[in-house]
């Protein structure tokens, strides 16, 4: 990769962010994260079980990765802000992936609450990375209130549908004053490559790797796809043509 990913005041070699949920087992997750080359990995904040202590993701991953806590599952601005504040206390990080699903069925972001929560968290000193709709106006508003990046969905979380509206993602990338990270919807490597070709600065995915038949191999595929898409974007692709243009010389043909 010729350039590093820059978010807020931090630089990263990897442009692939990976989630930590839903892997067949702990070892597969660790191997997949390593194969993907991720530096930033997402974790959730949840109530501890009153029945017994569960394994801490901090102990498991904290030494090798930078943990990016999320507010997934929060339904209100108040819950999202408190979850972010708890994450800051637990992890000693002011970075937060802000997720505010509008309902449990579609998991689409509640844009109105999202902007309100983002503004509150920025004012509270957070580096806010909001998971948002593929809507250029919402992305602009999130940047305006001080988010360090915007993370539009390619398709619904866990759907594997790829990038359903590449024109919107391209438009968001063209207009955004902050890095655009495609978050959600990726199903396979070509989706991740397309995100980067459209101008995204990075890709965040989880299910496509965790639920693949071979998560470790798919993580490697995503790593290569993100790199390939980034290189292609910056190499400058040829324009599309409706008709053929011969690539071999047209002079000196046998039989003419």
């Amino acid at each position: 990769m010729p350039d590093k990913l820059k978010i807020a005041d931090q630089s990263f070699e990897s442009r692939l962010l990976l989630g930590t949920s839903g892997y067949p087992n702990r070892q597969v997750m660790l191997d997949a994260l390593a194969a993907g080359g991720a530096e930033l990995v997402t974790v959730s904040v949840r109530r501890i079980s009153l029945e017994g202590y569960a394994e801490s993701m901090v102990d498991l991953l904290g030494g090798d990765y930078r943990l990016l806590p999320n507010t997934a599952g929060c339904a209100t601005v108040r819950d999202a802000v408190l979850t972010a504040q708890l994450a800051r206390e637990a992890l000693d990080t002011n970075w937060i992936k802000l997720a505010l699903p509008g309902d449990r069925e579609t998991l689409y972001p509640d844009s109105a609450q999202l902007v309100e929560a983002a503004e509150a968290l920025v004012k509270d000193g957070f580096v806010v990375l909001p998971y948002c709709n593929d809507d250029p106006i919402v992305c602009q508003k999130l940047a305006d209130v001080g988010c360090a990046a915007v993370m539009p969905l390619g398709a619904p979380i866990g759907s594997g549908m790829g990038i359903c509206n590449p024109y919107n993602i391209g438009l968001i990338c063209a207009r955004s004053p902050v890095p655009v990270i495609l978050d959600a919807g990726v199903g396979t490597a070509s989706d991740a490559a397309l995100a980067m070709e459209l101008g995204c600065a990075a890709v965040l995915l989880n299910t496509a790797v965790a639920k693949a038949q071979d998560p470790v191999r798919m993580a490697a595929a995503m790593r290569h796809a993100v790199e390939a898409g980034y290189l292609a974007r910056h190499a400058g692709r040829i324009p599309k043509r409706a008709y053929a243009e011969a690539s071999s010389p047209q002079l000196g043909l046998i039989g003419t």
Binding site: G19, T20, S21, G22, Y23, M29, T42, V43, S44, V45, R46, R47, I48, A54, S56, M57, V58, L67, P69, N70, A72, L82, T83, L86, A87, A90, L91, I157, N206, T207
Partner: peptide, 10 residues
């Protein structure tokens, strides 16, 4: 009182 820790997440 809420007591939380970090779990797997996406």
């Amino acid at each position: 009182v809420e007591v939380v820790m970090l779990f797997a997440g996406g």
